[in-house]
Simulated assay, not measured.
Amino acid sequence: MASAQLGGRTYRAALLDLRTGWTQRQLWAHLGWQDIRQRYRRSVLGPIWISITMAVTAIALGVLYAGLFGNDLSIQLPYILVGFIIWNFIAGCISEGSEVFISNVGLITHLPAPLSVHVYRLVWRQTLFFLHNLVVYAIMLIVFPQNLHWSDLAAIPAFVVLVLNGAWVALLLGVVTTRFRDLTPITQSIVQLAFFLTPIVWIYRDLLNSPNPAIAERARLAELNPFLHFVEILRRPMLGEPQELRFWVVALVITVVGWALTMVVLRRYRSRVSYWV
């Protein structure tokens, strides 16, 4: 009965796919952990390379941009480092999400499991990367102490919002790019472009508070970038900065609209993914 419902083209079947996939946590959690172990199987340092690479890049860019913009390194470096930690999660969900079903063609064609299992596996893997990078964040707090308060625990629900969006993005892109393979490299190119358009290495508030009205006005256009809002709701509490309601409103609206669109696509095309791969 469950298998029949799982194969239908109804919202109930789509929800059942998500629910059934969630109940198979032991499966996708194990697969996600094995993905990381396999990637660094013959490496001496293992997953530590993830954090080392990110830390070295953040330090280099922090020193460079602190000099270019005339900012104190104690401000610029933590800003960039936390931005990198958040961006790596976002970019990972999008880039790998565009290949989530294509790269799991063997499991999809031979293992009778909900499609959501592969998405949960991807998001779990990116979550492990994120948690691993928090080691660098902890070191940063020792070197450059931040004025953190209990209210900054808002970082936890902010990360939950990121996870929810990472899931629907990976699911939606996974279905669409499985049908239209040319969208995969296009998606990855867009992610690279979005990195430069999002305030990861440049400080948004500095431009917003610029004495030059033209620069401040153009800086406002950055808020049309949806990635800015997701980065800010998490980076601000991680750096002990006050939250701004508009970032949360935009992020939550995108979450609701994104999941609504994903459910429509999942209902219509979920059963065809196994043929498209």
Rank of each mutant, 00 (worst) to 15 (best):
T187V: 13
I215L: 15
V136N: 08
W248T: 04
F230W: 09
H118Y: 13
R181P: 09
R25V: 04
W276S: 14
P242K: 08
L61S: 07
P242C: 00
S3R: 11
A194E: 10
N212H: 11
A29S: 12
V256H: 05
V277I: 12
P145M: 03
G258I: 06
S116Q: 09
H132T: 04
V56G: 09
P213Y: 09
T187P: 10
L171E: 01
Q38P: 06
A222W: 05
W202D: 14
I52D: 10
V63P: 04
A158Y: 03
V63S: 00
T184Q: 13
S103W: 12
T187Y: 04
P157C: 06
R270H: 15
T178M: 08
W248A: 03
G97L: 05
G106T: 06
V100C: 11
N225K: 00
A66P: 12
R218F: 04
N212F: 07
L64V: 04
L134H: 12
I59C: 10
P78A: 07
R267P: 10
R235N: 12
R181C: 10
W168K: 05
E99P: 01
A222K: 08
M238L: 15
Y120A: 07
R272H: 04
T23K: 05
P112L: 14
A219C: 14
T255C: 13
L207V: 05
S3E: 15
P199Q: 10
Y40M: 02
D35A: 02
S74L: 01
I86T: 04
H110Y: 13
P78H: 02
L27F: 12
L68Y: 06
L15P: 05
W202G: 03
R267E: 01
L31P: 08
Q26I: 06
S43F: 09
V123G: 00
V160F: 12
Q38Y: 06
P213G: 12
V256Q: 12
A170K: 01
Y137E: 05
F130S: 02
V265W: 14
G70M: 00
N88C: 13
Y65M: 14
V117W: 01
T262H: 00
W28Y: 11
Q34H: 08
G240T: 06
I190N: 07
S51T: 15
V250N: 07
T53N: 14
L197I: 07
L15W: 09
S3N: 09
Q24I: 11
V175C: 00
A222G: 15
P199K: 01
S95G: 13
V44R: 02
V176M: 06
V201G: 07
W28C: 02
I36L: 14
A60N: 02
L131D: 13
A2I: 13
V231W: 03
W22R: 10
M140R: 02
M263Y: 00
G92H: 04
N212V: 12
L122T: 09
R37I: 03
S43C: 06
A2P: 00
H30E: 02
V44I: 07
T109I: 02
R179K: 15
N147S: 15
S43D: 03
P47I: 01
V105E: 04
Q26F: 15
W87Y: 13
G21Y: 02
I59N: 01
A58I: 08
P226L: 11
L224T: 08
L122S: 04
L193T: 01
L15R: 11
R270V: 11
R267C: 10
